[in-house]
Structures are given as C-alpha cells and as structure tokens.
Simulated assay, not measured.
Amino acid sequence: MTQFWLEAQLNVDTSRGPLGDAAYVWFDTLTRALTPAERAELAGLPAATRINPLAEGPQGEPGKLYGLIEVDRSIGGGYPTTERRHLSEEGLEWLRGELADLPKKVTVWIGRFTENGFLGGRLMFAGAWPLRKTPGWLVLDAQVPADRFTDPGFGRAEQQRCLRAVRQAADRLNPSFGQIDYWRDKGNTALERWSTGLARDAQLAIPQTRERLRGYSWLTIASQEVAEKLGGAAAVAATGAFAEVEPLAEGGLWLLATEDFADYGMRAAEAVFHAVAPALPPGMPRQRDNFGEPPTFVVIADPFVVSGPRCS
C-alpha cells in the first residue's frame, strides 16, 4: 500500500519582515507545538552533531531520540554544501545566525533511532526555502504521514494538533497563501498539478498570491487582498462551504472546509471551489492519470466562467 504524506505549507514575503526571521518563527512554533516534550529533552545537547542521514551504518542508540537541523547552501560553481547541528538550544541559536543570510534550504526533523541504530521514523519534519526565480518569497512546509490524520483512534486529535500549530504560525507570519493537502512534487498544489503552461509552476504562482489563490484544499489560507476580493469573512462564511471561516491576526482568512479531514472529498471540494472561484487563476484544469499519486480533489471547470470577470 502506497504511503502518502500530507503537507502544511505557508507562503510568506518580505512585507512581513526578513525571511530568515519568518523561517525561525516557523521552526520554533512547530517544534514547540507539535513536539514539546521532545524539544525539551533535546534542549541541553551541544550544537555539534555527528549524525548524517547520508552516512552508512548505525548512528545512535536504539530507541533514543534525535533532532537534526540541516542547512544547505550552494558554493562556487553551484556545488551544494550541508551543515548539520543538533536540534538543541545551542543548535537553534546557531540556526538563527545562519538564517541572517538565507540558505538554499533548511530542514528540521525529530525522530528516534531504529532497533539497529539507524535514523528511524520521523515525529516531526519541517522545511523552509526561498524561491529561486523570484527573490523575496519563502516557502515553509511541514509533512506528516496521511494515515495519522485518518486513523480511527487518534486521527482527529492529530488533525487538531497540526491545525493549532499552523494557526499559531499563520497568526504571526501573515502568509500570502497556505494549505494543508496531500504532498506533491516541488511543493505544487493539486490545482497546479492539473493545470497547464505557466499555471503549473509554483515558482511563478507564489509571487501572485497577494492577488489570487494557488488552489483550494481541506485548509486554505487566503491573504487579506484575496479575502477582500471574495467579499470578506462574512461573505465567505455565507457560502456555507466552510466549517471554519476566521480572520488571522495580521490579516487574511483561515478557511477550513470540514471539521474532519476524512470528510473532505469531491463534494466538499466543489463547494469550496465555487466559494473561492473569484480568486482562482482562470483556465480549465486538465485531469491527469492519478495512478500512484495521492487523492486529488480538483473541479474540472474554469473559475473565470463560474465567477465572471472578477477573477481576471
């Protein structure tokens, strides 16, 4: 059975302030909200670490907790260089300094060593990277196995933990766009994956997110500018498409389609599509072969036709 992953993603720009500061807020918020006990256990470790995900052989005591910060940069000629530190207070202080000159990518993850001493299942995984094509924009993401959200025993609690963490970050960062949906290659939304031409390129779509959405999903976060295009919180709530319509602390809207992720399917997606159509990019999506890919809930309709000239 294929294991799919869910991704929480926020897009932020320099209107909020330095992108390095935004990245630090993301990592600090998620580790405190999702893995507070693990962060406390790791806090006293020195910054330096010998853990290397690319190394062969065992790297730690079976069952023991580990936390890792990876900072990737490119040096002359484009060759990548990676530095690693423990996810400890000293390691996070080192990371804060590294973020002053934004790297190519930063990842933070927590897990436990397997019974053979190898790096094991991840308890928390988050990343941050600036856009290559358009300076001034940052992608923040975090990933969890989809079955954590759908487990009949603890799925709802896991959903709420993740939503609370993302909400805390969104209230501080004023994102231009955000979502929780199945992870797709290159950070694309489901709509981008099924679009054609330039509309499929997240690198080009993200700089437009103060004016239009990149897609829609179980959780959709809209910028203040997009919220105004949709008529504001009251108008969006009146569509009946969302279980939650709430303003974010620094502007924008938090739009949760269903209380339970398991209830988000094509019918719910159709309601969300019609509610946000005025802020979607025009064009007819093209359904693709979904074999081996996660579920995709995209309405095959042109939002320009549905909503009229408002989405041009």
Rank of each mutant, 00 (worst) to 15 (best):
R73V: 15
G60Y: 02
P80D: 07
R112P: 10
E61D: 04
D72L: 14
V108R: 03
K105G: 04
I110Y: 09
T134E: 11
G121S: 13
F118E: 13
S88H: 02
W109N: 10
P58Q: 03
D72I: 11
R73A: 01
K105L: 12
L123R: 13
G97M: 04
E70G: 02
W137P: 03
T107D: 11
E56I: 02
G136S: 08
G117Y: 01
S74K: 14
R73D: 05
R96P: 01
Y66S: 00
P130G: 07
L138R: 05
L92T: 06
S74F: 09
W94S: 13
L95A: 07
V139S: 10
F125T: 00
H86W: 15
E115M: 05
N116P: 00
I69M: 03
L87C: 09
E83A: 14
G67Q: 08
T81G: 05
L68F: 03
E89W: 01
L68R: 02
L99G: 09
K104H: 11
E98R: 15
E115F: 03
G127D: 12
R73P: 01
R84G: 09
W129C: 01
E83T: 15
P103V: 09
L102H: 03
I69W: 00
R84T: 08
F113P: 08
G77W: 07
L131R: 13
G91R: 06
P103M: 09
R85E: 05
G117A: 02
R96E: 15
G117K: 05
